[in-house]
Design a protein around this nucleic acid. Structure first.
Length: 344
DNA sequence: AAGTGGCTCAACCGCGCTACG
DNA sequence: TCGTAGCGCGGTTGAGCCACT
């Protein structure tokens, strides 16, 4: 037997909320907290179902919601996180403070998705659409680039699948030893399958994947639907004890370049999307607007300053960046508790 | 001024997961 | 172990708005 939908309940109002209803809900939650959503409407004297109340609160009335236009950095972040996480809107929202998953989802569907599509990039895979890149002209550069992009995607999926397989038992162990995690957190943990392990950094599996695919490519060329090309920098791979990290940096560099190029390719002169490698990435006004994700800032600066070298300060910066990327995937703050918590 | 089509986004629906009795 | 309640998530809908003809 299925649960009856919220709307089946007789006498309950649906549709847009009135200011009076908003006020009732606000007042009640201020005084008592939301508690059980199921019983809230009756207690708050609202002719709504609990689900409707929860949605209204989480997507609109919550005091910590930022409304209005998305900033460039928010747009950029959404694209980057979408490339990493797919349609996991709640996970993406967790890295954009004051934005709701619903808002991000809507923004993606109405703005970003269409924009990427217009640019000849598949918004689902974040790869150039095949027809526009099919190398009908027989250009070997285009063909090899296509292969490059496919390898990148395969590596990503492979790493993600491996994480899913490996994380589940560890997740259980960790919960036993460190206490309960909320339902939501558990769900996220299951979905993202990226539980931190102290004995072996999780990034190593991803690094292997990167290493086995992309990092053999030197000076590859990224081309896009408009016929433009992006020269990726010579490989920074080095076979020392830093090998894996260097490999990751090379791959991530490529990834960021790809994503950067998305912005470039889409923008006409003066278009707001032209922000590649810009120091504006760290605008004071948007400082920390994305929690635990500043890799592209670091890497872009590193690229600008010291393109083909790893060592010294850059090495530590790389360590930091990699940790941060893992933090994003794990949805945790770098150098802090490894457990995912809602709204981390 | 009226009609039309496209866009936006708040709200809803249905499913999956976890907790609990 | 099973059934149910409650919640959160992603996908979808539709009312309202706006630009264009």
């Amino acid at each position: 037997m299925g649960r009856s939908p919220c709307s089946d309940t007789n006498g309950l109002k649906r549709g847009p909320w009135t200011p009076e209803e908003d006020q009732k809900l606000l007042d009640y939650i201020k005084k008592h907290g939301h508690g059980s959503w199921r019983s809230l409407p009756e207690k708050a004297d609202l002719q709504r179902c609990g689900k409707s109340c929860r949605l209204r609160w989480t997507n609109y009335l919550r005091p910590d919601i930022k409304r209005g236009k998305f900033s460039l950095h928010e747009e950029r972040t959404i694209i980057q996180l979408h490339a990493l996480l797919g349609n996991r809107w709640s996970a993406i929202a967790a890295h954009l403070p004051k934005r709701t998953d619903n808002e991000i989802k809507n923004y993606w569907n109405t703005h970003i998705k269409k924009r990427l599509a217009r640019m000849g990039i598949d918004p689902t895979t974040h790869r150039p659409k095949i027809p526009s890149l099919a190398s009908a002209d027989g250009d070997p550069k285009k063909a090899s680039n296509l292969s490059h992009m496919a390898q990148w995607e395969n590596a990503r999926l492979e790493a993600e699948a491996r994480l899913v397989r490996e994380s589940k038992p560890k997740q259980n162990d960790q919960q036993k030893s460190e206490g309960p995690v909320s339902v939501s957190a558990n769900k996220q943990l299951n979905r993202m399958a990226t539980t931190y392990t102290s004995t072996r950094p999780r990034c190593l599996d991803i690094l292997k994947a990167w290493e086995s695919t992309i990092c053999n490519i030197n000076g590859s060329i990224i081309s896009f639907g408009d016929g433009s090309y992006l020269e990726s920098p010579p490989s920074i791979l080095q076979f020392s004890e830093d090998r894996q990290q260097a490999a990751a940096m090379s791959s991530l560099e490529n990834m960021n370049k790809n994503l950067d190029f998305v912005y470039d390719a889409g923008g006409s002169a003066g278009d707001a999307w032209n922000i590649v490698g810009s120091s504006s990435v760290n605008n004071a006004g948007d400082e920390n607007f994305i929690e635990g994700f500043s890799c592209d800032y670091h890497m872009n600066n590193n690229n600008n300053n010291n393109n083909n070298n790893i060592g010294g300060d850059q090495e530590s910066s790389n360590n930091y960046c990699w940790n941060e990327l893992i933090s994003v995937v794990e949805c945790r703050q770098p150098n802090t508790t490894p457990f995912y918590t809602r709204g981390c």
